[in-house]
Design a protein around this nucleic acid. Structure first.
Lengths: 325, 325
DNA sequence: CTGAAAGCGCTAACAG
DNA sequence: CTGTTAGCGCTTTCAG
């Protein structure tokens, strides 16, 4: 189990100075093409890879972006993927820190700080406003997917109001008048969606009906069981996972979708196999914007607005139809 | 955006030497209880957190465990959670590196190496044997969840043979004779499960019927569409996600589960709401073992076997029943 | 128990 | 173009 080769090993074997190797490895000007190639080959030969810790320590910039995310959320996975590739394009590294039931956001963020990342991109991190603001004072912070009252951080999100509105309009256009909402409880964005739902129904002089839900399929199933007996003609759920749980209960109870009841999800995170009508948030776009925002702050470029709000799209698939069809 | 406080800042403010602060922060003997408390309070006051880069660089040990995982797999999320907590208990840190469609296992592992983690725990990383062996020569490697021909790495997994066998026996006991398998293609463990399925059916003089599947719900749905017309009485799928996709297609096609067809999943990764009969792998246990194994290698403790194989449990829920009930 | 001193592997000025 | 020289913030001897 021998130790990793160092810059010095490469230098020695290539017969040049460490500084030169450093220059070559970083790809900055200051070495002839011939030397460059030679050094690179030697490095390759002895399996040299720069020690990222040392590099981070020595450099004045770390070019490291810290990202929190909760595992097990398809939408977060999509965001992470986008963040990785946007960051790479801009020459930044990414370090992930997971939020799990036993590992709180605060803990995840602390880890990121210990790595001395230059900016933090927070996905799925529910932290209290004062703490978030304090964090925003220390380093550029971009919150993805949810709003915040804090003025110290950037926000990149999709408009919950617009998304819910699209969904409600779609259902109303189809002729639905009894539209229920399975909410997300304390989940990110849940409050905004709930409010938008209320507003949407009021706009059409309809009566809101909110059922407690959550983020998971199980929450959706629970809500489904609560709704199945006194069934509305349409249901808008907090997210796709929730919709899936609801659908499952409905279908098993012999309730046909979309014939007996229409269902609209949120996030477009489910594989298309379910053919769920849903409000789509463009994860790749959100990711790109979040990274751009963080980088802009780091590089002192002007950032137009603290908050960037994307407009979601409604994707009509096969779980919605006119009532009593 | 001021810089982070350093060890020196704490020392200055507490009126002691840097070395002492270091001792206190690491919690090693060498400081009086009074001093210890004082230093700790000062550190807390100025919001000091040790720089993990510097710590890693200076210490002879990094106590860092590198973990690959693919986002978007509930089973991996469970493993990650377990790894985090086991590592913490043993005084190790964890750094995650995601495998995504655009970020190959090799890339993810290289990142881990750049962080100079002392050992690697590979979950969901499909890499060729020679490369894996080469990696195993460099540092302790524990592969989780799948076997490998490589003799250079440790393996912690659940017996696919035993799991599939449990499932097949269960179905046969229920009276099924026409049992299909939706396989996992090239996914981890898919080959082993496929072989065990074949062996299981042969044991009972039944004819195997294998349908191409995959890891996702969509793959399961595709397989479901292929099976729905010439329906077996029972289906064993590569994993739960696959089972869910299959179920979805069946239920929509008016095929009742378990009345018309029984379905057995694998992983127990779905929320219980689906009431899926499935083969359960104990993620927490696997995680603990993987971490213990890695740590044992690092600390030169004896490791009994290269491979640890857990026995899975069959969890009978509501998707299996006798045929023609 | 405490302080001084030597690096860890790298980057970044600066001279040559 | 190339080599020299300082550190980055911390751990780790080793004397006081």
């Amino acid at each position: 189990m021998r130790t990793h080769p160092t810059l010095e090993d490469v230098a020695a074997r290539a017969g040049v100075s460490r500084a030169l190797v450093s220059i070559v490895m970083r790809g900055v000007p200051g070495a002839s093409a011939a030397t460059r190639e030679h050094v690179l080959r030697v490095a390759e030969q002895i399996g040299y890879r720069p020690d990222s810790r040392a590099r981070l320590l020595a450099g004045r910039r770390s070019r490291l972006l810290g990202v929190t995310l909760s595992l097990n959320h398809p939408f977060h996975a999509d965001l992470a993927e986008g963040i990785y590739s946007s960051a790479e394009q801009l020459g930044y590294e990414v370090v992930l820190s997971a939020i799990t039931p036993r590992r709180e956001p605060r803990r995840a963020i602390d880890t990121l700080l210990d790595y001395r990342c230059e900016a933090a991109i927070l996905v799925g991190a529910l932290v209290r406003e004062p703490w978030l603001s304090a964090l925003g004072e220390r380093l550029p912070v971009v919150v993805v997917g949810q709003g915040t009252r804090s003025q110290a951080v950037d926000v990149v999100r999709t408009s919950d109001a617009a998304g819910v509105r699209l969904a409600v309009e779609h259902l109303v256009d189809l002729g639905h008048r009894d539209i229920a909402h399975v909410d997300g409880g304390r989940a990110p964005g849940a409050a905004a969606r709930r409010n938008a739902y209320r507003a949407g129904l009021h706009r059409h002089a309809l009566t809101p009906r909110i059922v407690a839900g959550g983020q998971s399929e199980e929450d959706g199933a629970t809500a489904g069981r609560a709704l199945v007996d006194d069934r509305p003609t349409a249901v808008l759920t907090y997210n796709d996972r929730c919709a899936v749980g609801l659908l499952d209960v409905f279908v098993r109870a012999g309730v046909a979708v979309p014939d007996d009841v229409s269902v609209v999800g949120y996030d477009d995170s489910q594989a298309p196999y379910r053919r769920l009508t849903t409000v789509s948030q463009d994860a790749a776009h959100l990711a790109t914007l979040a990274v751009q925002r963080a980088v802009a702050r780091l590089e002192g470029e002007p950032v137009p607005d603290r908050e960037t709000v994307l407009t979601p799209r409604l994707i009509v698939r096969c779980t919605t139809a006119s009532p009593g069809r």
